[in-house]
Write a protein that binds this DNA or RNA. Structure first.
Length: 286
DNA sequence: CGGAGTGTTAGTCG
DNA sequence: CCGACTAACACTCC
């Protein structure tokens, strides 16, 4: 699940709880998910204090007192669960139906803090990763990532310039490309294109000035609303631990194929664009 | 039971 | 350089 709004929600939720904590121990059940050498983690992460939590695109960055930063990507099914010393849980990311305790069979990396609290990284499909690198190398690590769409410096002109790098690809593929705009995934690509009334299959270069302006404001409005809604929880499952993101109930396109368009009443259509399931209105998206 | 589909992206191939 | 496609993996749904 986690796209920009979900990762941002996780960041905000975890920030207050993790800041200032000292990492006492690292437990790794699936070494494959650790994308940096274990000895580096032992040397630079264990014993370190957490200075801040940041986010770039869909990546959570945990800045440490040692001049190093932990990067966590949840990919499709990653989940972070914080458990305080008293045992209270707080989850973020993809809910796992029927699994409501931690650690569980999908817990592959555990950070234990000196106050007895812990952060569990669960990931059913094991696509996610945990990296550790010098904080000074961060901008280099993100050098291929495009502009943050919620930043004020993201203007229609910036979007146009970014799209011009991928002129021949579909506008949907371009939005999913993290080097064009950061943090957009399948849900918010469909939502933004619906809001901007642009057909997902169109070549990026075919967008006119007015198209770009509409798409730009649509991306920002969609993501802003999604962050305010605490993201999207696809699963109807409620586990009583973390709160559910409510954007799911506000969505207008994603997963609504066969249902009526909220704008014109036409039946929404499903197609495969950029190898991804895509929902759009054949009438009001042009 | 088989096959398709799932919120991501790095890497390969043409 | 560019864009399309696949692999990484586990699970759910029809």
């Amino acid at each position: 699940m986690p796209e920009l709004p979900e990762v941002e929600t996780i960041r905000r939720d975890l920030s207050g709880r993790l800041k200032g904590k000292r990492i006492a121990k690292l437990e790794v059940r699936r070494p494959k998910l650790l994308k940096s050498p274990r000895p580096l983690f032992e040397r630079e992460a264990v014993g370190a204090r957490i200075k801040s939590l940041k986010r770039r695109a869909k990546v959570l960055a945990i800045e440490l007192s040692t001049g190093h930063t932990i990067l966590i990507h949840l990919k499709m099914t990653g989940q972070l669960v914080y458990c305080s010393a008293s045992g209270r849980l707080n989850t973020g990311g993809h809910p796992i139906a029927g699994v409501s305790s931690v650690p569980n069979k999908y817990t592959y990396v555990t950070f234990r803090f000196s106050d007895g609290s812990a952060l569990y990284f669960n990931d059913v499909r094991m696509f996610g990763y945990v990296r550790l690198l010098p904080t000074k190398d961060l901008s280099q690590a993100f050098s291929h990532i495009g502009p943050e769409p919620l930043s004020l410096s993201f203007t229609p002109a910036v979007l146009a310039a970014r799209l011009s790098r991928r002129p021949r690809t579909s506008i949907k593929a371009a939005l999913l490309d993290q080097s064009v705009v950061a943090g957009i995934g399948n849900i918010y690509a469909d939502e933004s294109l619906f809001a901007g009334r642009i057909k997902p299959q169109r070549r990026a270069a075919s967008l006119t000035g007015p198209d770009i302006i509409r798409l730009h404001s649509s991306i920002r409005r969609v993501l802003y609303l999604a962050v305010r809604s605490r993201g999207t929880s696809m699963n109807s499952y409620v586990d009583g631990l973390g709160r559910q993101g409510s954007y799911w109930n506000r969505r207008k396109a994603y997963g609504r194929a066969g249902e009526k368009c909220r704008r014109c009443g036409t039946i929404m259509r499903r197609a495969v664009v950029a190898q991804r399931g895509t929902t759009y209105c054949p009438e009001c998206q042009r």
